[in-house]
């Protein structure tokens, strides 16, 4: 059992959730409520990570974040080391490939709020921020939580993108999914089996939680 890899994966998943939560709230709310030009395009681009092969996405992220890219060069100037093959690089990649997992359930959550409730909140004197906090978040939270749980679980299991962008540096970018592959390569089937079982248990718990929350969304109305 590679505890270091498990801990790294949990840390990566945690950061991804923390960074994506505000994005999911504001992005999901905007997609659910605002009518703007190019909304369909935004939704299509956000769906892309769901259908692209992870290695393809990883390849483009490697190119986009590498030392030769503007982002990578800027990072290098600011922090004195490159972004790819580091934990920070993994976090950036993880946030990007998890966008649909976080935003889409949040959007469903906000869409489930009848517009008249938001109007009622406005006529009750609530500013847009207060409406978000007092009315919309309490009603959309099952969707938000579903998105966060899925993001967390998905980050733990991601393999292709992590390998492309991060490599397999122990303690820096070697996540539990990479560690499992690594153990199998070394014919250490026992360790690989234990780690796989941990991920299976975690995924089952995630699915159970998500289903219960979805039922709550349906039952609240």
């Amino acid at each position: 059992m590679d505890w270091q890899a498990l801990f790294l994966s949990l840390r990566l998943a945690g950061w991804t959730v923390v960074l994506l939560l505000p994005v999911a709230i504001l992005g999901g709310r905007a997609l659910a409520q605002a009518r703007f030009r190019g909304r369909g395009l935004v939704e299509a681009v956000l769906t892309l990570p769901l259908i692209l092969p992870p290695t393809v996405l990883g390849f483009y992220l490697l190119v986009a974040l590498g030392r030769e890219s503007p982002v990578g060069a800027l990072w290098n100037d600011l922090f004195g080391h490159q972004l790819v093959f580091t934990f920070q690089g993994l976090v950036v990649a993880s946030v990007l490939f998890n966008l649909p997992f976080a935003i889409q359930p949040a959007q469903r959550g906000f869409e489930s709020i009848p517009p008249v409730l938001i109007e009622a909140a406005a006529t009750c004197g609530m500013s847009p921020w207060r409406r978000l906090w007092r009315v919309e978040m309490p009603l959309a939270w099952p969707g938000l939580l579903t998105g966060m749980v899925m993001t967390f679980a998905h980050t733990l299991g991601e393999f292709g993108i992590v390998l492309m962008v991060g490599g397999a540096i122990p303690g820096e970018t070697k996540t539990i999914a990479i560690a499992i592959y690594d153990r199998v390569q070394a014919f250490d089937m026992r360790s690989a089996g234990v780690m796989s079982a941990v991920l299976v248990l975690f995924s089952l718990a995630t699915i159970a939680l998500t289903y219960r929350l979805s039922a709550r969304i349906g039952g609240a109305r």
């Binding site: 008249v116 409730l117 109007e119 006529t123 009750c124 609530m126 500013s127 009315v135």
Partner: peptide, 16 residues
Amino acid sequence: HARRLGMVFQTWALFP
């Protein structure tokens, strides 16, 4: 929200 008014909607729109 900046207009001090009270409104009763057709479906009442109470916060569930």
